[in-house]
Amino acid sequence: MKIIAVIPARYASTRFPAKLMQDLGGKTVIARTYDAAVNTKLFNDVFVVTDSDLIFNEIVSAGGKAIMSQKEHESGSDRIAEAVENLDVDIVVNVQGDEPFIDRESLAKVIEVFKNDPDKKIDLASLMREIQDPEAINNPNNVKVVVDQNGMALYFSRSVIPYPREVNVGVHYFQHIGIYAFRKQALIDFYHLPMKSLEASEKLEQLRYLEFGKRIRMVETSHVSIGIDTPEDLERARKML
């Protein structure tokens, strides 16, 4: 089974323009993320896929591997799918470009899903962590997920799901952590399928997979990801490093 990591890396960012090219301890954020992915030793190969000459040159000049996007894309899945369409791979893991402190254990968990699925019934694997703070549960920026008894995703939403009409029934709330592992064919199918109403309404690309019958296995983790979305995040990352 050939497993690769792909890091989608847009130069533009609404909240923090050019954040991936910011200095983080003598290396750019994207270079640190690339090195961290390689150093997990979980992958047969690691690629950055980008729309930016600056990011492309940053990775290649340091001896890394980068792919230039040929089209504009609305989602990370679209960008990755275009990049891997002609690559001979089985499993593609999406690593976020603005998360240089990669948690190897979490990545290993999503990869393990496919190693334990010889009949190839699972199309994607992703992560979730339990949240209990009411503010976090109600925050629409925290995407929630509900699963069946086998850990398969039933639905993702920015709303509170399930709705707590009865509060004393032992419901647990889970936040979706945006690390994905895909079978290559599921990713290519996504690329060629249209956006439908659920995805358009919630602005969540994972709903396209569910709307077209793809099976997403969720894996619980306690890891809290550390992303760089603002200049303040970058300062915290520098101190942490």
Rank of each mutant, 00 (worst) to 15 (best):
I216E: 00
G213W: 04
D233C: 05
A36D: 04
S126C: 13
A12N: 10
S201V: 12
K65T: 09
Q70H: 15
Q70Y: 06
R32E: 13
N94M: 11
S201G: 05
R129E: 04
I3F: 01
I226A: 09
N39M: 04
A181G: 11
F212Y: 15
V171A: 15
V89C: 08
H223Q: 10
D119S: 11
N86M: 04
M21I: 13
L234W: 06
P8E: 15
A66H: 05
H172I: 08
K65I: 03
G97T: 06
D53A: 13
M68R: 15
I179M: 02
V224N: 12
G63S: 07
P100Q: 06
I80P: 06
M195P: 02
L20F: 00
Y163S: 13
G178W: 03
P231N: 03
T230V: 06
S69V: 05
R165F: 12
T28E: 09
T230I: 04
V147F: 04
F174V: 05
K203E: 11
Y155N: 12
R79E: 09
H192S: 12
Y209R: 00
M128P: 00
Y209Q: 00
S52C: 09
I131C: 09
K144P: 08
L193Q: 10
I131Y: 07
D53R: 12
V84C: 02
L187Y: 02
K109W: 02
S126L: 01
